[in-house]
Amino acid sequence: MRWGVVVFPGSNCDRDCLFVLRRVLGHEAVAIWHEERILPPVDAVVLPGGFSYGDYLRSGAIAALSPIMAAVGRAARSGLPVLGICNGFQILCEARLLPGALLPNADGLFHCQPATLRVENNRTLFTRGFSLGEAVRMPIAHGQGCYYADPATFDRLERSGLILLRYCNARGEVTGEANPNGSLGNVAGISNEEGNVIGLMPHPERACEALLGSTDGLRLFLSAGSKEPVEEFRPSYAGSALG
């Protein structure tokens, strides 16, 4: 499996993603500068978290017009798996590869904390390693993660099972108290109709080693990047986080 991680000016989770893909999963992964016009040969693309272009205009709006995004859009429409994390999710919405938009958190605060997410659909490329209804843990770190879509679009997401993850409490219950940012329907992650493009606000790359409190994020990368059952995976290095 060969991954491409796009680097925008202001990306700050690109190295975390590359570390996880290379050192924890043992896959190939290349960094792709945003000014590239052609994607190198890769099996999947990650748009990492960060604050591309300082969140100027709107989060993700300027990055969505980067030369590489035209290539990512063409590849996504041809079926290439694309994973947008945090700012990457915002970029995918701004590029209209995913529906809706991410607004400032309803309480006006930046939230950097562990989050619990209920798996709402485990039949997609990136979520097949989870059980349906399972509560998984990954951190969030964002100021603009309040998912919004107009009522007709949101209804279509619900009916088509395109909502993959919702914020929930420790018992797996989707409640208002468990919603950190005011997202419609507690949405934390969605996919496109074809299932190859997904975006989520939580950071799976920060939940890939037991030392960091959760390995649930690893299962998301493994879902897309491995033919073997996710449970049988062993990290490629021998135990040390520093590899």
């Binding site: 607004l103 400032p104 958190n105 309480d107 006006g108 309040c146």
Partner: peptide, 8 residues
């Protein structure tokens, strides 16, 4: 139709 925390 959108909540505006800054405006609030």
């Amino acid at each position: 139709t959108v909540f505006d925390p800054q405006g609030e």
